[in-house]
Design a protein around this nucleic acid. Structure first.
Lengths: 203, 203, 203, 203
DNA sequence: TATGAATGAGAATTCATTCAT
DNA sequence: GATGAATGAATTCTCATTCAT
């Protein structure tokens, strides 16, 4: 039974706190307590707060970009590619809810302080989207469109959807069916896909 | 030449810093210096940091919700209403770029710490959108749709568009035409409108 | 209907706060609020906090010493003098409960910071007691005794009796008779008198 | 040579400052400097100023009550018990001069803010005195008397005696003999004992 | 005299980081 | 690797006092 390495434990815990309270709002004492490790251990394993943040972001952003790229690049049809793109990004965001919160905070700061390696991952996703749209245009399936606007639409919508789940769950609840509709990420992704593709399709 | 009241000056300055650095990242000493007022004056006028934040958010969110509600409620046609809704929200966001950044940070925290009065304003905008969509459905113009998803799409997209402007401006520039297309909020609003309305329209 | 002068109002209010919270624990903002006067008014009328404190102490200590001296010096019999001394000091302390609290705090500090004029008043009372004891000795009525110890006994006991009244009143109450016995200063003074005189009398 | 623990060092030093300047007059910066410890260390060991004060009072009051109780409860004779009570309380107060000053300040505030655990100690002493007086009455040795008045007499007198020592020492000195008489706590206790017992004894 | 607004010098507390063991 | 104990540099907030009107 492999014991989780302290370093990993800290990283996981830190990611949650950074997502919940932001970089400045995360306090190393709290982190130590919540991880159940000694404060000095954090410094032993991760140098300092900034490095820890960077490590957390890399570990968080890379697999998400990987997943999207892996799913999309095997497809040829622009519509299928776009659907995959949105679905995989939505799924990955929902699977790791800290991702959206951290991304939103970074974007609120204009992305200025985001570690380069984390920014690269978002750029991979954006570039991939650009290729898909261009492919669609060249095949006369899609109208020309602003990649950036489409990207913002996907990312912005899913960010809000995911980060608002806990809050919405705390509201006086509706029916089971509503619950599914409101919190199911697959259905949300499908709706976003549909809206975007409807508007992109020629004719 | 009426002198701007100190209290207002502090509020304006604080709003900027809260947008740029978040609540925890905003330092009262810096605020005092940037306002050109004495540190104790901030406390004289706004009690403490938390109250100052609350005051800033109220002053920020209220006029934006007011503007959207005012523009939309005079319209009868669902399509026109939706266009107005998106256009006004985009305009207001762009006119007050601190709004988007602060909203995003708050949403990243799940909105949990947002002052009630500020949250109310966002709820007004959401309710208004719900009415418009319902009106469209009842007139057999719109397909049924999830208000929340549409709301997230509008808000999420515009948030990202607005907050990313400074960063994008810092990138190696494209042509004048590109610049306009990429930074002009009216054009962005029009594209978002088009995408959403295209997908909502029956037929 | 003579309006109470602001200066007096401040002095009265300040005396209460100094008694309740001590010099360092008394905050000028609170004082202004509790007096219902503007903070700057306090400075207009009393120069600064230290002066205000001095003014308060003089106004508090002088009439008390005056009362004791007036009552005692008209008597010739040592026993009557001592009884008067204790009774008047007790009465004056009870009439102005702030006196005991302030005196105790000053004595706790070793009297080092007490304004000279206030200290003088306590010295008058001590000297008077010395005369009475000497008179008793010279008339072969009293045994020789330490003036200072007797003084401490009178002052210390009455201080505690007076300052503890509010606290004792807050305790789960006893009968009416107990109440009278426990809170009636005349009866307390009588007991103290009796104890001291019993032990001083020759035979 | 066992090094004194930082936590203890702070407590000892804090007790002195609280006695000299009161709670509000004690400044954490000064404390740190006088202890020779870092300011943050104080907070590491004692949480905050209020907790530090509480800790200091507990450490100060408990051994004093213990000493009095220990000395008195082994005695059977009411007179001996009362003599022990006064002597031990006087000795303990003189051995730890900070005790009297702090107690006086607390009593000046009506004891309202005194930590419960410290108040308990004074209550133990008061209860013990009550038992002794009752025992004396039941054996027909003492007249009936108010426990509270006797307690105030003992505590009030000794408080003043002890806290006034430094001030009295600064006065233009008298003879060696006077010095002993005026500053020797054993002699003061004996006098207080005599006065009180004289007045309590039947016949 | 009275008052709202300022302000400089503190004072309590926090926090990232380091050190000795 | 782990841990309790430091520590210096902030950071929030307070308070006596003054100023302009």
């Amino acid at each position: 039974m492999a014991k989780i390495k302290t370093s990993e434990k800290i990283l996981k815990c830190a990611t949650r706190l950074f997502a919940q309270h932001g970089y400045d709002g995360t306090i190393m004492d709290d982190l130590a307590e919540q991880c159940g490790v000694n404060k000095a251990s954090i410094y032993y394993h991760h140098k300092d707060k900034a490095t820890l943040y960077e490590n957390a972001l890399i570990a968080l952003f890379t697999p998400i970009a990987d997943a999207v790229v892996a799913a999309v690049s095997v497809e040829d049809d622009p519509v299928t590619r776009l659907e995959s793109h949105i679905r995989m990004f939505a799924r990955a965001s929902a699977d790791n809810p800290y991702f959206s919160a951290i991304l939103m905070r970074e974007l609120a700061s204009g992305g200025a302080n985001m570690p380069v390696s984390a920014r690269r991952q978002m750029e991979r996703v954006l570039a991939l989207l650009g290729e898909t749209l261009l492919l669609g245009e060249s095949k006369n399936i899609f109208k020309p469109a602003e990649t950036l606007i489409i990207h913002f639409m996907i990312v912005g919508t899913i960010n809000l959807f995911v980060t608002s789940i806990p809050f919405r769950k705390s509201l006086p609840g509706a029916s089971r069916a509503d619950q599914r509709k409101n919190f199911d990420i697959e259905s949300a992704a499908a709706q976003i896909s549909k809206i975007i593709i409807d508007s992109l399709l020629l004719k």
